[in-house]
Design a protein around this nucleic acid. Structure first.
Lengths: 223, 223, 223, 223
DNA sequence: GATGAATGAGTGTTCATTCAT
DNA sequence: AATGAATGAACACTCATTCAT
């Protein structure tokens, strides 16, 4: 929702504004983030900022939109963001393989763009809070819905249990992924590139344990 | 850390200050919470507040300490907070039963004291964040450590796997519990009292699936 | 006083700029009116506005000039604005008849062009104020002078008393007309067309009572 | 509506704040008036102003209330403001004598407190505008109602005509008084004290001419 | 002729904190 | 032991105006 002028701005400046604002918002949250600081760091005048964005809220939403677009691009496999890799799998095994691939892509992306990771965690944390900014809640909701959709696909393939109240499985699985991510984030500095695959497999295994039907052959337990 | 004078204050007033401050901090977070509002709601003067607490930060820490003490009291089974029920179990089965009991107590407590629940979720959400107040991170860390200790006990009993990097299992399990809690919170209004037991069993089952050794008889899958 | 370029502008655009600006100035007053808003509503660029007008003040004066020209055209009987109907009456009775006709014309005009009415009232209200914009005070002064001239004509015909300090009679009469107008404005929606004549006669009668010489046969009291 | 603390402030400081604020509001109107300027002129800090008043609006209302209280005190004859001198007159002649006395009091007051005059005219001018601040419109409305009440009393005594639509007479008379006032204000510097009586009689005569029943013996025309 | 990006002093408002009493 | 008046830097936001293109 930035004013249409923003689209016409020099791409470098655009990217810089979004980067600087992302950092500030990611580091301090919407409320504490200071527009004055963002403006100063961008080297713009007050008026210029308000020339492109109608207010702090608008800037924030723009930052989040940019983040979400980037995220979904990664999640859709680098192709256009309408591509849904999980729609193409046809067996439970392929389904779980796609989860591994999904995680592999995500981790690689976070390593390259640490700010994305910050934003991502902010979104996750904001869930169900009632306190955080509506736009952030929106983004969190979209992420959650993405996962819900993928779990739905898993249900169709018989890879995901269906005997629990709507939302319970999703929230628990989502929470676990979030926790795993948290650990991952703190280890990023120490994480050798060649371990990424193992990590992706591990988190997928955890996910399986939670969401697989109780009658299924348990993941990672094939004697 | 409040000034020593605070200890000498009339217990009713003490409790009132902490309750009012808890509500404000729980509802709006440290940064957005207004000392002015707290002071007004307590019916005290500005000077009085600063007589007992050196600053906003100090008040916040006091509130959190009180919260944490209350939490651990519940978690220790209502006895003094040095009592550690998990230390007393001697078999894996007893270990899991204690988890169920633990959850049952927690849920009952949240239902009676919603403010505690609010604080709790704030703590959870703040985890691993460079954003939130250090004192909140501290509390979150202590909660995490409590769980870590309990998982350690599980390891000793052979109920918890030991083949993963320190922290990974903890964060994943903690995240799952958090997500489960989140779902629970939204259902509180609709949750009949007699279902609490089932809920406590369910979340424990999820926990088992994540943390049990891979070779173990999987939880909830006994034919 | 707009820059000479304005004269050369396409008449439709000219009229549109003046209309839009009139609305904004009439609705919000000089200070609160936003040039940005006017510019946006006109669909022109910032630069263009400053190409034709040297500043906000300049635009305002142009708008007022246009308003005043239109007003005097009406008051001069629809003919060119040098025509002065009151100069042509030769008896007191004809003088008062002309006042009635004057009012009839004015009311009809306001009904067709509400913006004019708004401007008119703004001018009236600004009278004798150290607050309003000098240009508005100027316009108000010119309106006052128009009435002064007409009263002068009345004095020549013996229809208007001459025994009071310069200005006193004028201000009182002007104030009364203003008050009458105010009432009129609020009743516009409910005012059937056929009552306009009665209204015009009534206000003229009020005017007569104030300004007629004390020895004259009082208006509306002819046994 | 100032915060209750304001009442406890040193009366000199209170009066000073109201005086300074009155001047600024009277001179520039609500919107243009700068709180910063008022604060600086009072020699207070920003915080202090907001300690006593919740916002600009609050300060403005306080100023207006003070003004209105002062005005009604004068109008009630210097006695407490519940005293209504017009209620005590019992004949048309006494009624008109009270108007003269009323005007005499008002003029004397304006001469001593010029700011009151400024405020008064701002109120008058704001009438029926839709633009001005609601609080100002309120005050204007109360003044109008005061006059309406007095005219009503005149009707009861047969001193005021009753054959015109509600409001028309009031607005016309009010407008005339306003215009008269305007003239008066510009002459204040030149007005010798001994002429005040004549002025008060003159404006009352004007009023009579407008509002007296058409059949009555006209004022000031007794051959 | 015309554009629109950029400016920056200005606005009203908040709030943790201090300190004379 | 307690008060509450006072502070002032910081906040988000506005808008008439300029000027390189």
């Amino acid at each position: 929702m930035p004013l249409p002028r923003f689209a016409k701005l020099d791409p470098n400046k655009k990217a810089n504004i979004i980067l600087v604002a992302s950092e500030e918002f990611a580091a301090r949250g919407y409320e504490k983030a200071s527009l004055n600081v963002i403006i100063a760091r961008c080297g713009m005048s007050k008026g210029a900022m308000y020339y492109y964005f109608s207010d702090k809220d608008d800037l924030y939403r723009t930052v989040l939109e940019d983040f979400l677009a980037g995220l979904f691009e990664i999640w859709s496999g680098g192709a256009d963001d309408k591509h849904r890799p999980f729609d193409e799998v046809e067996t439970p095994e392929a389904y779980w393989e796609e989860w591994i691939a999904h995680y592999r892509r995500s981790i690689r992306h976070y390593q390259k763009q640490p700010v994305y990771g910050e934003m991502f965690h902010r979104c996750l944390r904001s869930r169900a809070s009632g306190i955080s900014h509506p736009a952030l809640t929106d983004v969190a909701e979209q992420i959650r819905e993405w996962i819900a959709t993928v779990l739905k696909r898993g249900e169709e393939l018989g890879a995901v249990r269906t005997d629990l109240p709507e939302g319970l499985l999703l929230d628990s699985a989502f929470g676990m992924l979030e926790g795993f991510d948290r650990w991952l984030f703190q280890e990023f500095a120490n994480l050798p590139d060649e371990e990424i695959d193992g990590i992706a497999e591990l988190v997928t295994e955890f996910l399986r344990r939670i969401v697989e039907p109780v009658s299924a052959e348990p993941a990672g337990r094939r004697s």
